[in-house]
Design a binder for these strands. Structure first.
Lengths: 121, 121
DNA sequence: CCGTATCCGTTGCGATACTG
DNA sequence: CAGTATCGCAACGGATACGG
């Protein structure tokens, strides 16, 4: 058995996710980074939200980071961007269905986080 | 309502996790980083494992990263380190009970990762 | 066998200023 | 209003060599 034949019970049935394509790893990358959770969180709470509203709500975020995070989330299919041709321009962001499945999992993970946190302290 | 009064339905009921202590965020930090999943994955598959075995199994990892990752995982209560005073020294690592709760959640997340990945391509 | 120590490149993120 | 552009730093991770 070579190193690449390692099986991983966590996320794959055939190969270790850590060595080839890993759905778990890529899932974590998608929601990783400093601001992704904050954005998903805000959109999940308020529903469709405008750019500037989002920016005011997420304390401390810069334009650079907000834009790049939104862009990545859109590319990964977690949010949709809708632009209305008004004057001035209005842009709104909304969670997609992919997030309907994601949120319950994140809640479980959050509960696990609480549990681990209280045990170690 | 100030920025800090934001409520987050994802992980807290009182305050937004992204602005104060966030169990979800810290959970992601614990399993984040380049090698954490690989280590958890290997230990979950094989059970108690020695340092060098782990190193051979996780292709590409350096001593520096393996040691620091193991140390962090131990500090966070996800693994235990046991050292046997033999000659030469034997050190073994094992998952803790905290991982029993974590693994099923990671599997769900992995399945979500598969779903998202297939949809966007 | 099981790590440390040191150095160094890359990436992530922040700050600030500016634009269609 | 909703972004871009540019610069700079600090953290993360890799490479190599050495130590108990």
């Amino acid at each position: 058995m070579t190193e690449r034949d390692v099986k991983c019970v966590v996320s794959c049935e055939t190969k270790c996710p850590c060595m080839e394509y890993c759905p778990l790893g890529s899932a974590l990358k998608i929601i990783g980074g400093k601001w992704k959770l904050s954005i998903l969180c805000a959109l999940h709470q308020d529903g469709t939200t405008r750019y500037n509203t989002l920016k005011r709500k997420i304390a401390g975020i810069t334009n650079t980071m907000l834009v790049s995070s939104l862009k990545e989330l859109e590319e990964d299919g977690l949010i949709v961007r809708r632009q209305y041709m008004e004057m001035p321009v209005r842009v709104e962001y909304t969670l997609t269905e992919a997030c309907d499945d994601l949120m319950p999992i994140l809640m479980q993970l959050a509960q696990w986080g609480v549990k681990v946190h209280t045990k170690e302290s």
